[in-house]
Computed example of a mutant assay.
Amino acid sequence: MTSVFAEVFAAAAPHLLSTFGEPVELQLEGQAEPIPARGIFTARHQEVDPESGMPISAVQPMAEVWAPDLPAQPTEGDQISLRGTTYLIVDCQPDGHGFLRLLLHRT
């Protein structure tokens, strides 16, 4: 049984992607051709403390994509291209509502 919240979120996802998303192409393992999709790209700053007591500021690029638009879930080592740059997917984190947060590393 699907919750009301899940139904509302699924109905809102296309509007979120058309408003805030941009074209992306995913190259997933086992797929011969790149998969066109829309994703919401951000590159947020985060503090990393390598146990030295001195925080270091780093930028973590990420893209959020709608899982139902993809034939398979991306995995570590797959690639995504957006804004003319190709990124390696280093982690894929489902948000529990249908979006996948892809943590990226610029290749």
Rank of each mutant, 00 (worst) to 15 (best):
M1A: 12
M1C: 02
S3G: 02
F5W: 14
F5E: 02
F5Q: 03
F5G: 01
A11D: 09
A11W: 10
A12P: 03
A12D: 12
H15I: 01
H15R: 07
S18P: 01
T19E: 07
T19V: 02
F20L: 12
F20C: 11
G21A: 09
E22D: 01
E22K: 08
P23A: 07
E25Q: 10
Q27M: 07
L28I: 03
G30A: 15
E33F: 08
E33L: 08
E33T: 07
E33N: 04
P34I: 04
I35G: 10
I35Q: 04
I35S: 11
P36H: 07
A37D: 13
R38Q: 02
R38A: 03
G39P: 00
I40E: 02
A43L: 12
A43K: 15
D49Y: 08
D49K: 02
D49N: 10
D49E: 15
P50S: 08
P50T: 05
E51F: 13
S52P: 01
G53D: 06
M54A: 10
P55S: 14
I56V: 10
I56N: 07
S57P: 02
A58S: 05
A58L: 13
A58H: 04
P61A: 05
M62R: 09
M62N: 15
M62G: 08
A63L: 15
E64D: 13
E64T: 11
V65F: 06
V65G: 06
W66M: 01
A67K: 06
P68T: 01
D69W: 02
L70M: 05
P71I: 01
Q73M: 13
P74C: 08
E76W: 04
D78C: 15
Q79T: 14
I80E: 03
I80V: 15
S81N: 00
G84C: 09
Y87T: 00
L88F: 08
I89Y: 09
I89F: 14
D91I: 05
D91L: 14
D95W: 05
D95H: 02
D95V: 08
D95S: 14
G96K: 06
G98T: 05
R101C: 12
L102T: 12
L103Q: 09
L103A: 11
L103F: 15
R106H: 08
R106A: 06
R106K: 12
